[in-house]
């Protein structure tokens, strides 16, 4: 399969290509690989934060704004799968339906356990696909809890952390890791009486940290009333320009690729390492009550040895 940007956009085909990608179809992975040089045109914005913070509502308003500027918008909305059934209830479209049936907005909901391999890896590749198919802005919504979700946020050029005023301490209520990844902080639901106090708390917390050349701004919004969105877009533009001018955009993308390729290499090695033969050997050694350290050495040496003999692929 090859890709050219002059063919008209076929929405059905694009949707099916995303599905194939989600299940690791090699033809799609290969297509992205072949077009690797054409990637990076789109501006990728990650939106993360606790459940119910108003991420979907914000993404909707942002998409509206971008559409008024005439750019094509892709949205990837990730929600957790049920650990029990493997199914998922994906409800982000409820807020987004007011975007109507605009052919220049493509929304895709994704279950966090639906993807092969790492979730971040898929989300990143899905964003690549949007990029290749000519979307100008890609909005990635993920719930800001758990490691894999934080990794998704890092697939973005700019990460927006959405929080809401709470009666308690805002900063204590923030999940570990969220504070670190924000390029912009949005205090949504600023119609809440606690919002002023919460904003002050967040401001102090931000100023306690060393940020380098870019100190994350706080933007107060009321997503349901479309308030503060133009300020948010303004700050996004400012961050985007900052990234480009300082070379940080290129650096971030390189870092992303470093992580992604490392991840892929690790997975490949792991698959080769833990073939059936070694799994059985491991269990046997444990049943024989041999010392763990010896088992480790033996398996490790066996794995290393396999590179010289070159018979690794047969033992699966």
């Amino acid at each position: 399969m090859s890709f050219t940007s002059n063919v008209p956009f076929d929405v059905l085909q694009f949707a099916k290509t995303l599905t194939k990608l989600e299940y690791g179809d090699p033809t799609v992975l290969d297509m992205i690989n072949q077009n690797y040089q054409n990637l990076g045109r789109a501006y990728r914005i990650g939106v993360t934060g606790p459940p119910g913070a108003g991420k979907s509502s914000l993404v909707t308003m942002m998409a509206k704004h971008y559409r008024e500027e005439g750019v094509r918008v892709g949205i990837i909305a990730v929600d957790p799968s049920s650990p029990f059934s493997g199914g998922a209830l994906l409800g982000d479209r409820i807020r987004m339906q007011q975007l109507g049936a605009d052919e220049n907005i493509f929304i895709r909901s994704m279950a966090s356990r639906g993807a092969m391999g790492g979730l971040a890896e898929y989300a990143d590749a899905a964003a690549d696909l949007f990029d290749l198919y000519g979307f100008d802005v890609i909005l990635l919504e993920t719930v800001g809890v758990g490691q894999s979700e934080l990794e998704i946020a890092q697939c973005a050029d700019t990460t927006v952390v959405v929080i809401v005023p709470q009666s308690g301490d805002v900063i204590q209520g923030m999940k570990a890791g969220l504070m670190e990844i924000g390029d912009l902080f949005v205090m949504n639901k600023s119609d809440d009486p606690f919002s002023e106090k919460a904003t002050q708390q967040l401001k102090s917390a931000i100023h306690l940290k060393e940020w380098g050349e870019w100190t994350p701004p706080i933007i107060n919004t009321v997503a349901t009333e479309n308030r503060g969105i133009d300020r948010l877009i303004h700050q996004l533009n400012a961050h985007h320009s900052f990234l480009i001018q300082t070379g940080a955009l290129e650096q971030r993308r390189q870092q992303r690729l470093v992580r992604r390729i490392k991840q892929m290499v690790t997975e490949k090695v792991e698959r080769e390492l833990w073939n059936k033969t070694r799994e059985i050997k491991l269990l046997q050694a444990i049943q024989e009550r041999r010392q763990p350290q010896h088992i480790l050495e033996e398996i490790y040496q066996d794995f290393r040895g396999s590179f010289y003999v070159g018979n690794e692929s047969e033992s699966n």
């Binding site: 049920s82 029990f84 059934s85 199914g87 998922a88 994906l90 479209r93 909901s109």
Partner: peptide, 9 residues
């Protein structure tokens, strides 16, 4: 969802 499907609501 409980039957293992991905439900877009």
């Amino acid at each position: 969802r409980d039957a293992g499907m991905e439900v877009i609501y």
